[in-house]
Design a protein around this nucleic acid. Structure first.
Lengths: 241, 241
DNA sequence: TTAATCAAGAGGTAGTAACCAGTTCAACAA
DNA sequence: TTGTTGAACTGGTTACTACCTCTTGATTAA
């Protein structure tokens, strides 16, 4: 079942196979085969099995109990890839809504002190500033203002941003893999400009969100402010371990 | 430096030692010793070193680059234990504020359908309902309403809750270790009861927070609603991987 | 000078082996 | 009957070995 001379590691092939089994045939708290049983079934070492299981655990698919076994997590139901939680597009699809994005502006700016500090840039560098309106089922949900380091994304165009989700662009066009993200949540009364864009009364509450996204080399690849309408938008995050 | 016959595993002793070194003597992007160098320095196998490094990586202390080395993460500056982000007490201490908690009510209730569903309980079970007012430097910050499964915490008393942070009680009195948490954020106009408790005008915005906390066996050990005043409270979360 | 090559050293993957520490339950002894 | 014990599982820890891929920089060849 596993391909030894594949470019994709054995343990990762196992992650795929077991993950699929869990999603298709198992329910929360079902017991998995023991590590040693998986070894013989797939003819791999326990090292490989434990690597795969560690990965599944990090993804929230399974949990282990010393002396008892490994079990399917309740968390497995609605969570695949942690990265998806950062993505408005993926987030909305998961909720059964149709996401849509309008790019309101796209420009290259010189970073100010605040941006330089938060993005780990020198004050001389440039950043790409993108303002987007996000809609779900045609209802305006949030306004996002994103800053990307120009040095890493100099060839990025407005057309591309209009065509593809930002996180797909990161990965497919610039080989930037998201490794970590910091998010800050707060609430306030909605600013009038955003009230207009989101089509809500001027005294409404809104959810403010600030996100800093890091690549595998621990560099900031995105710094985003979002303002979301309070009556429509709920933001979900999951912590594991 | 490491103690072979200790009850605490070698790899975890290494986590402590390396973590301390990072916090005390290193800064972001500094290179760590290579895995093989650490092996000889502490006289352990590479297995052990890699286990420790994996742990440090999960904690956000370090990041690795294939072929180049292992480096101190920028994230290390302000983050130790992911669990601490759930804890109001720890969270506030980290911000240099003095946390205080007033227990407003403590009672055992029969769960309704909504609670039963969210806590994985049958409709017949009981829960402990605790309402707390959280203050930082004497300023009321948020009102938290928590539900704990009575079956797991039947011996919990109001006195204990007044004396100790809830998450310390979980760990020390009931051996419940937090493994994962789901959080949902939204914003709204503050309800009048909370407006009064938080001493803000009735038309203020507030941050609403719903948290479900799981133990290592993937059972819900806490379900909490929070209402926080928008002008004072910012909630930070970090995702890794 | 410039480009290709190669070796050293980094982390990544994989196997084997052995023993430790919880959990469970059946077999045995009081 | 009621304990207790102990074997047979579970995952957890540790060591050793070997080879892979990626990065870097020095050496070599064009």
């Amino acid at each position: 079942m596993l391909i030894s001379d594949s470019k994709v590691p054995l343990y990762y092939q196992l992650v795929d196979i077991l993950g699929k089994q869990i999603k298709e045939n198992m329910k929360p708290h079902d017991r998995m085969l023991s590590e040693r049983e998986i070894c013989t079934k797939y003819n791999v070492s326990r090292t490989t099995v434990r690597l795969a299981m560690a990965e599944l655990e990090k993804m929230g698919y399974i949990y282990k109990m010393h002396g008892k076994g490994t079990f399917v997590a309740t968390l497995a139901e609605n969570k695949q890839n942690l990265m998806e939680s950062y993505s408005f597009t993926e987030h909305m699809k998961k909720l059964g809504k149709v996401p849509k994005t309008e790019v309101l502006s796209f420009e290259v700016i010189k970073v100010n002190d605040y941006l330089a500090k938060h993005m780990g840039l020198s004050g001389e560098e440039n950043a790409i500033k993108i303002i987007r309106l996000r809609l779900a089922d045609g209802i305006p949900m949030m306004v996002e203002t994103s800053y990307l380091p120009f040095a890493k994304f100099s060839s990025l165009t407005e057309e591309l941003v209009k065509k593809k989700p930002l996180y797909e662009i990161f990965k497919e066009e610039f080989s930037q893999v998201i490794k970590a993200a910091d998010e800050e949540f707060s609430a306030s009364i909605i600013p009038s400009r955003e009230a207009h864009l989101l089509q809500v009364p001027t005294n409404s509450a809104c959810l403010k969100l600030e996100r800093t996204t890091y690549n595998t080399a621990n560099q900031v690849i995105e710094f985003t402010f979002s303002i979301a309408r309070a009556d429509q938008f709920i933001y979900k995050v999951r912590h594991i371990r």
